[in-house]
């Protein structure tokens, strides 16, 4: 199965179960979605439930909000996170605030799905990672789906709850082959320990989770310690306790994200974990992020601007040697 097929399966099952679930976005219907996430749903559920919209992101989210007020459970697709900037008024001023400002009388079961991150040579305007922006808006929940399992269960969970969810995917993951691992009582609010270890805790999500897993064998060989790798399913709320418990065991924390380093969401993770574990730490936490540059178009420069498995391994090994691991 492909990552995008796991998303498709989640949507299909939720639509089948609940008639109020509808999809809207650019080319989500007849064309099957730009990344083919909604493929086949138009044929199955028709144009009334899988709605093609004009290229107008603010209206897509605004319409979804209206639908939700009217009793539907819309899942809006924004083609990529880069275009969500056009919808920021609806997302930040309406979607995030209506429940609070109506004194809880109006709930907004809206999911806004979108991929982010550096793909291959889509240049600066189409390669951004903006999780920090959404995570900093009170009233929004922000989920991230690193693999087919979190894509499937996470999206179903997002559709089922009454609060607005920003659901972030990664452009390079859609075509990756992976399987859904069966999970009972899945909750995105619980971070997943994907690999156990007792020397270094490494936290990441989306594509960086996979790159981290590739870097880990090299790190373990070079530093002679084992790594515990934690994958996040939600960045707001953040499961601090799972990470902190791991750090209490390993005494070393590394966070890997693709976004530019200044003001990165990685900072938030590190700070929240330090609050709980300061006296347990054996080295200053290491943050591995993208560079503070607009993503270059040139492939070599593009790769230099973001973490890669090689860079992740090198950074962790250097840091480990410096701090006595």
């Amino acid at each position: 199965m492909l990552y995008r097929e796991a998303l498709n399966k989640a949507l299909d099952e939720m639509m089948e179960k609940d008639e109020s679930v509808v999809i809207l976005g650019e080319d989500v219907g007849f064309y099957g979605g730009n990344y083919k996430v909604t493929e086949g749903l138009y044929a199955k559920y028709g144009g009334k439930r899988v709605i093609d919209t004009p290229i107008a992101e603010n209206s897509i989210v605004g319409t979804a909000i209206g639908m939700a007020i009217g009793g539907l459970r819309p899942v809006a697709e924004i083609m990529t996170v880069n275009f969500s900037l056009l919808a920021m008024d609806q997302i930040v001023n309406q979607l995030a605030k209506i429940r609070y400002m109506s004194g809880g009388k109006i709930t907004l079961p809206v999911v806004v799905r979108m991929p982010q991150g550096v793909a291959k040579q889509l240049a600066a305007q189409h390669s951004q990672s903006l999780e920090r922006i959404f995570a900093s808006v009170p009233g929004l929940r922000v989920f991230v789906a690193s693999d087919a399992t979190t894509a499937y269960y996470g999206l179903k969970f997002a559709v089922s709850i009454d609060d607005p969810v920003i659901f972030l995917e990664h452009e390079l993951l859609y075509h990756e082959k992976m399987e859904i691992e069966e999970e009972k009582n899945f909750s995105p609010y619980r971070a997943r320990i994907k690999k156990e270890g007792d020397g270094i805790t490494i936290v990441s999500y989306l594509k960086m989770f996979h790159d981290t897993m590739k870097a880990v064998p090299t790190v373990e060989k070079e530093l002679g310690v084992s790594c515990e790798v934690i994958d996040l399913c939600s960045i707001n709320p953040l499961d601090v306790s799972t990470i902190a418990n791991s750090v209490k065991k390993t005494k070393h924390l590394v966070v890997v994200t693709e976004e530019p380093k200044t003001g990165a969401y990685a900072d938030e993770i590190i700070y929240r974990v330090i609050e709980d574990t300061f006296y347990e730490l054996d080295a200053p936490p290491l943050k591995i992020c993208g560079e503070d540059v607009p993503t270059p178009y040139n492939r070599k420069l593009e790769l230099m601007s973001i973490p890669t498995p090689e860079k992740i391994a090198t950074e962790i090994i250097k840091w480990g040697k410096k701090h006595g691991i």
């Binding site: 870097a215 064998p217 040697k321 410096k322």
Partner: peptide, 13 residues
């Protein structure tokens, strides 16, 4: 394949 990296000499702080 296992990725290969070259790390230059790092001095302990």
């Amino acid at each position: 394949e296992e990725i290969k990296v070259e790390v230059e000499e790092v001095k302990k702080i």
